[in-house]
Write a protein that binds this DNA or RNA. Structure first.
Lengths: 211, 211
DNA sequence: ATTTTATATGAACGGGCGTTCATTTCAAAG
DNA sequence: CTTTGAAATGAACGCCCGTTCATATAAAAT
């Protein structure tokens, strides 16, 4: 038989994962039945238990994989540079990464409350690790006199909320290209942390300062 | 008998509303049963139908009341002034209003997908009306040469996402007062839209401000 | 050709769901 | 008192839930 063995979080069948991710994102974890997921895969409900011990683990595995992928991708993309360059890299990376997997992102921040306490704590730890990456950039930038940030924790949460917000309105083939969106959000992020040198280059004519 | 009469959205019994709001916010609409709500009220499930035609209407009424309250409160608070003063008023109003009713706010943006198409469209229209209030401020500010905003629609959504984000981490009696939080977010918002006049007053020395 | 193994079925389990409704309770109105 | 009628009960409706399991199928390994 093929019943799952180890301490769960195994390589849940890709077809099952894909079906669950799609349906959880569209209808919400609580509103999707195992029978509905099975239908999407083209199988009977009982067969799902060859790939996951239960519905909760299916959700947890999706969220865990997403968060780990996020951290790994940033570790690979966010190399060195001065704080300003690192902030630009972070902003562009965050928007691009999140726009590329809207379903996973949606689940990761809408279904937190449907995780059992233990699983919730694990996902929160991963989220915290990601936030810490941005906070370190802001702290370094402040220390270097590049940013004007009274509270790095607050600024971190504010920036991440702003950036992730793109996912709520972006639609493929819309009015603005991803590159353009990244640039606009980058300018807003730089302004929000008082990094006026970064903003200056986008200014030239119409109104204000030069540094 | 006391069965509801008009085209629904009546004055759903306040105790039922309060119980539903609390439970929907904590566990999610789909995960809360009518029996659980009844238990919270201290009544049997059947009695709830004296106050609402069905569960869906209970959710819709909560969201509609919240959005209308939001629009009315802003209409009362957001009087005139130049765009900079109006933006400051909006930021402070938004944070204060949202921090005062975390359950309603949480439901309003987490349970949209559980609304039937017709109800969804009505709530979205109210949300759009609120966003338009901010967008008008940004458009006026840009026209007056006060803000540097390449796309008012994007900036509107970015600012609202950033401001509403406060609700995800704020806890009563935390490290920072609401007033302090408002001020910090105000500075970030002003920076994000390139309103350097507003930020300037906070600059003086190397990092912090005094107001 | 036989055994093994992975994959799947489909019926069944106990239980919870939203909603309805005939009936009861009980305070206020007459 | 008696009548009214709003407020609430509690049983019942048909249906869907997550999960288990004995059984079937069929490809791979022997």
């Amino acid at each position: 038989m093929a019943r799952k063995t180890g301490s769960h979080a195994e390589i849940t069948g890709p077809r099952v994962r894909a079906a669950a991710q799609k349906l959880f994102a569209r209808m919400g974890y609580a509103a999707v039945s195992m029978r509905r997921i099975a239908e999407e895969v083209g199988v009977q409900a009982g067969a799902l238990y060859l790939y996951t011990p239960d519905k909760q683990t299916l959700l947890y595995d999706l969220m865990k994989a997403h968060m780990e992928e996020l951290l790994e991708a940033w570790a690979a993309a966010g190399k060195g540079g001065d704080p300003l360059a690192r902030l630009e890299a972070f902003v562009r990376f965050h928007i691009r990464f999140h726009l590329e997997r809207p379903d996973a992102v949606f689940i990761a921040y809408m279904e937190l409350r449907n995780l059992e306490a233990e699983n919730f704590a694990r996902i929160e730890a991963l989220r915290k690790a990601y936030e810490d990456e941005l906070e370190a950039i802001l702290a370094d930038g402040r220390a270097a006199g590049l940013f004007d940030v009274p509270d790095t924790k607050l600024a971190t949460l504010a920036l991440i909320a702003m950036l992730t917000g793109v996912n709520t309105w972006y639609r493929e083939g819309g009015r603005l290209s991803r590159e353009r969106i990244e640039s606009i959000y980058l300018d807003m992020a730089l302004g929000a942390v008082g990094a006026e040198a970064g903003r200056a280059r986008a200014m030239a004519a119409p109104s204000r300062e030069a540094e």
